[in-house]
Computed example of a mutant assay.
Amino acid sequence: MKSKKTIIFPKYQEVMSRLGENIKLARKRRKLTTMQVSERAGIDRTTLYKIEKGDSKVSIGSYFNVLRVLGLQDDFLKLAADDEFGRKLQDLDLI
């Protein structure tokens, strides 16, 4: 069975690129090499390069492991934490 190809529209790819850049800056601030981070995260160095570029084809687990190595694993919990739109929809049902 063929897997579906994930499509990220260009304006949303910018979000992924910014995430990758933030991860790269966090690594550099900690003075960690790509080899150190990739080994500690249990991923190939090529995968780390893709993460730092914001590649959407890399698994979310790999992103999490890199954040864990950088001590930023709690930031992962911030993803989709504030569902303002969902609360507004829910409130409309209550009226």
Results as ranks from 00 to 15, higher is better:
Lys5Leu: 09
Leu48Trp: 12
Leu19Pro: 01
Glu52Gln: 02
Ala80Met: 03
Phe85Glu: 15
Gln73Trp: 10
Leu89Arg: 01
Arg29Leu: 06
Ser3Gly: 12
Thr47Phe: 13
Ile23Tyr: 06
Ser62Pro: 02
Phe76Leu: 03
Asp74Tyr: 10
Thr34Cys: 10
Leu70Trp: 03
Asp91Ile: 00
Leu25Gln: 11
Asp74Ser: 15
Arg40Trp: 12
Asp93Tyr: 06
Ser3Cys: 12
Arg30Tyr: 09
Glu52Pro: 10
Leu94Gly: 12
Lys57Asp: 15
Arg40Phe: 12
Lys57Ser: 15
Tyr63Glu: 00
Lys53Ile: 02
Ile8Asn: 06
Lys24Leu: 12
Thr34Ile: 10
Ile60Asp: 03
Leu79Arg: 03
Lys24Ser: 14
Glu52Phe: 00
Ser17Arg: 00
Gly86Val: 01
Ile51Tyr: 11
Arg87Thr: 05
Leu89Trp: 01
Lys57Asn: 14
Lys24Pro: 07
Gly71Asp: 09
Ile43Gln: 11
Lys24Met: 13
Ile51Phe: 12
Leu79Met: 00
Val66Ala: 09
Val69Gly: 14
Phe76Trp: 11
Gln73Arg: 11
Lys78Met: 08
Asp83Thr: 13
Asp82Ala: 11
Leu94Ile: 11
Asp44Val: 08
Gly71Tyr: 14
Lys31Thr: 10
Leu67Lys: 08
Lys57Leu: 13
Phe9Ile: 01
Lys24Gln: 10
Gln90Thr: 02
Val69Glu: 09
Pro10Arg: 04
Gly86Met: 01
Gly42Cys: 13
Leu70Asn: 05
Ile51Arg: 09
Asn65Trp: 13
Lys5Asp: 07
Asp75His: 13
Leu70His: 04
Asp91Arg: 01
Tyr63His: 02
Lys4Gln: 11
Leu48Pro: 13
Thr34Gln: 15
Asp44Thr: 07
